[in-house]
Design a protein around this nucleic acid. Structure first.
Lengths: 222, 222
DNA sequence: TTCCCATTCAAACGTTTGTTTGAAACGAAC
DNA sequence: GTTCGTTTCAAACAAACGTTTGAATGGGAA
């Protein structure tokens, strides 16, 4: 039906975990339902991943790291193309949002589940308990992107840029994890667009938010 | 009888639950640690709230409903003052964000815990399992505020306004629940401002995002 | 007093949780 | 065929969970 039946228990577990974690959250999925859906023995999780937490971290790292690495790569390439000149704000934003869209396209699980899983990675886990590799790559993102943004928006302090990037991430996470609930609450007043369209609206919203005049005076000797 | 302050165990439970839920999340707090912190018997939760879920919902409703009711009241009063003219976008935003700040000030638990609790209410619970009273009031917010925004931003379709309000809520929730992690990840590059200052930045960000020119053409031919 | 109702309490209930165990099964190398 | 390391399996494990129980407690009202 699907692909190569190379499906060692490890692969089957990852696949089942992605779907189930997305549907119900990391904590609420028991290892029994998990292994049952994967068609493997209960002990397989502890054998292949050490513990349930190990499986959770493997799933998280497998999802978030590619996105953040693609972000850094896209930004590097954009900066290379700019040849020393500041990269346009819109381009930086695309470097940030594009990899999410791309990851959705590449995803083997349903689009809807992907949203929920990616959103849940930011939400269920307390940030400090994320896998180290995820923390490190994300930290890189929180360094490179503010640098690029600062060159594009020199009138803003790096601190305020960081805050606005924080806000933008909030929009993205919220859209990924809670859009379904929003659509339900909105009743019939808003139909569900394709993810590209939602992301286009996010882009517009965050672009305007990032470009807005500074809240604080840029701190120069007071 | 049922209420007034004579229900000391009930009150102690609510107080302890607020702090613990904020610190560790709804699911991770066991009834034994909960009742122990409150200094009451283990069975008290089931006696006073029916179940753990009942306590969770009481805590959530006690926090979110006052905020949403204050939002609606503030908007009504602003619309009264406007006497038929559209309310300014900044005023609408203040009606939306102000009650959060006010609730923080009134909160009996530490400010930091309040953030986490309020953020967690949106995050831990799947939206459809929120208490009915919360859903209803929040639905009212999702009706009144887009109406007011549409009068202030007539060039935007109501649908796009709803999306942008969705985004703004995302910023707020993210700021409430994940700012601590953000500060940690940012290393020493950004100091923690007072909550008022953070909200001021949120206001600026969302104002610009809301005001941005429409993504879609207002009229769709299909 | 006696009765009644609301509340508290210690103890136990039945499930479910993640994890561990020791044996069985498999496949490749010798 | 025998050996060896890896993987699978059924079964059991101890701990933690939310909930229930039935008796004890306390203070008004009759």
């Amino acid at each position: 039906m699907t692909n190569d039946q190379d499906a060692s228990a490890k692969f089957a577990l990852l696949q089942a975990a992605q779907a189930l974690f997305a549907e119900e959250g990391f904590e609420k999925v028991s290892m029994r339902t998990l292994t049952q859906k994967a068609g493997v023995n209960l002990a397989a999780v502890n054998y292949h991943f050490g513990s349930k937490q190990g499986l959770i971290e493997a799933v998280i790292a497998g999802y978030i790291n590619p996105v953040n690495q693609a972000r850094l790569k896209a930004l590097e390439s954009a900066e290379g193309a700019a040849e020393g000149r500041p990269v346009a704000l819109e381009t930086i934003l695309d470097c940030f949002l594009g990899p999410v869209l791309e990851a959705v396209r590449k995803s083997e699980i349903a689009e809807k589940l992907f949203f929920q899983l990616l959103g849940r990675c930011m939400v269920d886990q307390s940030l400090s308990s994320l896998p180290d590799s995820v923390m490190e790559t994300f930290q890189q993102v929180l360094i490179r992107f503010p640098q690029a943004l600062h060159r594009s928006l020199p009138e803003l302090s790096e601190e305020e840029i960081l805050w606005r990037l924080h806000f933008s991430i909030g929009v993205l996470v919220h859209v990924l994890s809670r859009t379904e609930g929003f659509l339900h609450l909105a009743g019939g007043r808003v139909g569900k667009p394709a993810f590209e369209e939602i992301l286009a609206m996010v882009r517009t919203f965050c672009r305007a938010g990032l470009m807005s005049p500074a809240v604080k005076e840029t701190v120069e000797a007071s």
